[in-house]
Simulated assay, not measured.
Amino acid sequence: MAFRRVLRASVPQSRLQAVGKEVAERYGESLESIESLEADNWLSVPCVVNERWFVKVIAGQHTLVHGLLTTGRNIGAFSSGTEGFFEHFSTPLEMAEHELESTRRMRELGVEAPEPLEAFEHDGLGVLVLEYLPSFRTLEEVSEAQLETLTPDLFENLSRMHAAGIAHGDLRAENVLVAPKDGEETLYFIDATRVDDDAIEDAKAYDIACALASLAPLVGAADAVAAAADYYSPEELLSARNFLDFVNLRPDHDFDAAQVKGVIEKTAT
């Protein structure tokens, strides 16, 4: 926990206020409020400006932490029998611009994500402005009945991204939000990271493994793998199996890797 506190960067309130003022002025308003959100986020300081815009403020230390995490993930990928495919960012602005573009690409495919508005630099900080979802829950907070519907939806959206050559790269329960849209509970994908476009097959297998790791504790390994099998071939599921031990080492996943492996092997054969 102490290590996490060291890694998690903060931005002084005065600089956050200045960013909030800049965001509001860009949309013809004055700054009325800026609220920092409580989040287990090492890569930005998330805020809400004027209760209208979701803003990620990215400092130089966030870029450094991303580089450290990227190195660790690539070592994990090597341990899974493949070359590393995670890529780092050089500057806070580059991080903001990448997420803006990734979010736009997802929405173009029909995958729901908060509307991306703009990315810019302010006083050395990267600033990403997105649509604010005032009412949302994570996958861990929805009912079992809702998960029965949302689990296939997750794999449908993920397979749509993969078919277009896009990988999420950081799929976990906290990065899949559930929010109302047109009277229905809808999945919104956030926080995609950068992966090597030439390694999309490995990145796809890693995404599937992360999705199974997130869902298995919620719906059970059998139901999670069955939902994935509706959209991925046995060969693709077996490729995902190779990443499960690596995914299980991450502090943001807690699941029975051996059980998920066993269900994949039974399903694939």
Results as ranks from 00 to 15, higher is better:
K181D: 02
A258M: 11
E112A: 15
E51I: 05
L109W: 07
D197Y: 14
A173I: 00
G28H: 12
S44T: 11
L238I: 02
G169K: 01
R160F: 10
L68N: 08
R15K: 15
A173W: 03
V247W: 00
L249G: 14
A226M: 03
N74Q: 07
A24F: 08
Q259P: 07
A145S: 14
L128C: 08
R5N: 13
E140G: 10
P46D: 13
V55K: 08
N74P: 08
N41S: 15
H66M: 09
H122C: 11
G84N: 09
Q146E: 15
V19W: 02
L249K: 15
K266N: 11
E184Q: 14
A199H: 09
I264W: 02
L215Y: 01
A39L: 08
H162W: 05
T186V: 09
N50D: 04
K181H: 06
A163R: 13
T63F: 01
E144I: 07
V219M: 08
D202A: 07
I190G: 02
V49Q: 00
E38T: 15
E201L: 12
G262I: 10
H98T: 10
L68I: 14
N41V: 14
Q13E: 15
L171K: 00
A2K: 12
N175D: 07
V65Q: 10
L69K: 11
L125R: 01
P114T: 06
A268R: 00
H122V: 11
A216C: 12
L125P: 00
F89D: 12
R160I: 07
F120R: 01
P92R: 05
D198R: 11
G165F: 04
V129P: 05
A205M: 05
T138K: 12
F54D: 00
P116Q: 06
A228R: 00
A59K: 09
S233Y: 06
T103Y: 11
V176H: 06
L64T: 10
V6M: 14
A179H: 02
E156I: 02
F54H: 00
T103L: 12
L147H: 05
L139K: 02
E201P: 07
I166S: 01
F89L: 13
C210L: 09
N175T: 07
K261G: 09
Q61L: 14
Y232C: 03
C210W: 03
E97S: 10
R15I: 15
